[in-house]
């Protein structure tokens, strides 16, 4: 289990290599990378977070995923600071004996991370306008869909 909050870019190949070498029982590794989506004149996002709580929430989330999906390992990396369109923001990886668990765990981790970890995005547009991103109802629904039935 690896959790990190960092300004610098992550190395997807290195993270993949780490997950794939965790165990000889590993049969499936699933990776998700989120990046800054452009459009409507968006130039960049600036990510703010709550140091201390962020790492704690991410560790708890990764712990939950390990247990819930019987993972062999998982990685969650979230960047902070100013990121331009096309730059990677978040990395989620899960390693399991079978693909189903790895894929499901990846969805679980990113869905819960978006609404449960204390990060906030501020958008900066070519026009000079700057606005805080509003939480999306769809994101909250995706996160709560993983709650116990």
């Amino acid at each position: 289990m690896r959790v990190a909050v960092q300004a610098e870019a992550f190395d997807v190949a290195a993270e993949m290599a780490r997950l794939s070498s965790l165990s000889t029982l590993a049969g499936g590794i699933s990776l998700f990378v989120g990046q800054v989506r452009g459009g409507a004149g968006l130039v960049s996002l600036t990510l703010e977070h709550y140091p201390g709580m962020t790492e704690k929430v991410m560790r708890t989330l990764a712990d939950d995923a390990m247990t819930r999906f019987d993972l062999l390992g998982c990685t969650v990396i979230h960047r902070i600071g100013r990121l331009e369109v096309g730059q990677p923001i978040v990395f989620v990886g899960a390693c399991a004996a079978h693909r189903g668990a790895a894929l499901a765990a990846t969805s679980f981790l990113i869905d819960r991370l978006k609404t449960g970890a204390p990060f906030w995005k501020k958008e900066e547009y070519a026009s000079g306008a700057a606005t805080w991103v509003e939480a999306r109802v769809e994101d909250e629904a995706a996160a709560s869909a993983w709650d116990a039935p």
């Binding site: 978040v90 978006k114 204390p118 909250e140």
Partner: peptide
């Protein structure tokens, strides 16, 4: 560092953070 309800108690020495809904990922 733990999300709480409006009815929860805050005591001397606590760190309280107030913020809008989170928008990570």
């Amino acid at each position: 560092h733990a999300l709480c309800a409006m009815s929860d108690m805050v005591r001397p020495g606590d760190e309280v953070a107030v913020f809008p809904p989170m928008t990570g990922g």
